[in-house]
Design a protein around this nucleic acid. Sequence first.
DNA 1: TTTAATGGTTTAAAAATAAGAACCAAAAGG
DNA 2: CCTTTTGGTTCTTATTTTTAAACCATTAAA
Lengths: 109, 109
Amino acid sequence: MKNLEQLKNEFANLSEFLIAIGDETRQAIIIALLEDNACNGLRVNDLTEVTDLSRPAISHHLKILKQAHLVDFRREGTKNYYYLSHNISEIEQLRQLLTHVSDIIDKEQ
Amino acid sequence: MKNLEQLKNEFANLSEFLIAIGDETRQAIIIALLEDNACNGLRVNDLTEVTDLSRPAISHHLKILKQAHLVDFRREGTKNYYYLSHNISEIEQLRQLLTHVSDIIDKEQ
DNA sequence: TTTAATGGTTTAAAAATAAGAACCAAAAGG
DNA sequence: CCTTTTGGTTCTTATTTTTAAACCATTAAA
């Protein structure tokens, strides 16, 4: 079945994204960034307060979130402002994957 | 904002599911189960062949997939037949979460 | 041009996850 | 009742992930 080969790729391409959003610490970071409706972006130290983690730990999780294209940041002097990416293409990709899987399961019922 | 508290819960409730489907070995198991369009279910030894892993390793991953409500199984004597759950409610929950997140991001633009 | 602030990186430790060998239990078949 | 098949569960080891202390580089401020 040709479809399943495609599905396998869709799945593999989303691994990083899924692992990124599966972790509860990173979920807390994402929520904090969603809460920032002023949309200025949050700094690393803002996030250490939210999560009770050290700066290197936050930095590490932000790196994972950046690699998964979930967050982006801008520099202003020495300050880094993190925010959720404006177009997270993985969201739509994941939605399509879920539809694919549902379709196959329903077909086999 | 009341919505974000709800979003936080939706996220937390899906952690197990997201971690389950983020792992590439477990993705391989899911694909194999999707390929079983006869829908008889696959046995542990069928899956060891697909993935080149030991039986305890497969057993371990199946446990995680069961806890995430992704797979189910039936016994026939000593034989266990694993299959994808017929109604994976987490699929719809995740779809709604993605919509929620998109909505908030778009609103803030 | 010092001094302070900001924050990434490296390093090392701790914790969690994954893996297979060995073991155990249950059911089928002789 | 013994033997075989099947497959879950320890148990131990290896790997990966997470964490914070220490370190370093950059920019702003004094």
